[in-house]
């Protein structure tokens, strides 16, 4: 690995943690996607376990409820033969008033190799990573970042379209509160895709035009000629008058239905990070459309997380 400096980059993910997509290079992202691509193929074969994480301990530390992401990380780790510990927040010391940093240092004393963290506050995972000796993977911090989601989305698109460069990707929905949108904008831009974000102004962050995406408040225009339409989940508490007046109005103007779908390219992919609100941000029949790759996203999620864990494990001390 040390022989040719040029080769080092392609064979190596030079980071201890995966906290954010911001600043990741195309080379680094493609390295992870290539690794994940192989893992995805391997996962479809029987007896698909590899032992690259044998003897390693992974802690899933979820301060915010999650079913699919936690299960995905757990499965990814187990396919690589790691020992997995799921920290259930409702029974943890957090409920007893322990601070985030005390929790971090307590876990650190147990000497895990990788901690996967989800937290409801932006920046919390970064803070935790500063206090531990192991690798940390951000599984979502507030509305900030969810790197493995963006990577699995990129892999899904790449496998369906063969490339990302030059594609037009429209991300539609609650951009304001979305870590998925922020992470995806970073990854898609790094890989040369054009990104649009579509939302009512109440669900757009300030200075959203500075994020590296074109901004639309009219979905009919925003999805025009899109190669990919990525729908975001609208949280229930945001539906009733505070940010948007009603689910009916939201669906009419910002829900993906067949009519709006016809504005996109005829081979446009339909994506959603899940869990979906059918009839709120996406019509039920569109979710089940032949061009919907929503289930592929879930499958690629496991593969991408395997790739991330493997890449980080390579940098761990023995």
């Amino acid at each position: 690995m040390t022989s040719a400096a040029a080769k080092v980059e392609a064979l190596h993910f030079p980071h201890r943690h995966l906290l954010t997509c911001e600043g990741l290079s195309a080379t680094e992202i493609n390295f992870l996607l290539d690794l994940a691509d192989k893992a995805a193929d391997a996962n479809r074969q029987p007896g698909n376990r590899r032992d690259v994480l044998r003897g390693r301990t992974l802690i899933n530390l979820f301060f915010e409820a999650s079913t699919r992401t936690q299960a995905s990380f757990e499965l990814a780790a187990k396919r690589l033969c790691a020992d997995v510990l799921n920290m259930n927040v409702s029974t943890s010391s957090v409920q007893k008033g322990e601070t985030l940093l005390d929790t971090a240092m307590t876990l650190n004393a147990m000497r895990p190799d990788i901690i996967v963290v989800r937290h409801h506050s932006a920046g919390a995972v970064e803070l935790l990573s500063q206090k531990v000796d192991c690798s940390v993977v951000n599984a979502g911090d507030g509305a900030h970042q969810h790197p493995t989601q963006a990577l699995l989305d990129a892999l899904t698109i790449r496998r369906a379209k063969g490339r990302l460069s030059g594609l037009l990707v429209a991300i539609c929905g609650d951009i304001l509160h979305s870590r998925v949108a922020r992470s995806n904008i970073n990854v898609l831009n790094a890989l040369g895709a054009r990104v649009r974000i579509i939302a009512p102004s109440t669900l757009l962050p300030a200075a959203s035009e500075r994020l590296g995406a074109e901004v639309f408040t009219d979905m009919w225009k925003g999805v025009e000629d899109a190669d990919v339409i990525m729908m975001l989940r609208l949280q229930r508490e945001r539906m009733l008058g505070s940010y948007v007046p009603s689910t009916r109005e939201y669906f009419h103007f910002f829900g993906l239905d067949h009519e709006k779908l016809t504005r996109a390219r005829p081979d446009a992919l339909i994506m959603h990070p899940g869990p979906m609100n059918r009839g709120v941000e996406i019509a039920s029949t569109v979710a089940d459309h032949s061009r919907s790759v929503i289930h592929d996203q879930v499958e690629m999620g496991v593969a991408v997380r395997m790739a991330v864990l493997e890449a980080l494990a390579r940098n761990l001390p023995n």
Partner: peptide, 15 residues
């Protein structure tokens, strides 16, 4: 502009 003129939740302005 707000549901029931209560000043709490915006109405379906688009529709």
């Amino acid at each position: 502009a707000t549901k029931g003129l209560k000043g709490e939740e915006i109405t379906e302005i688009g529709l």
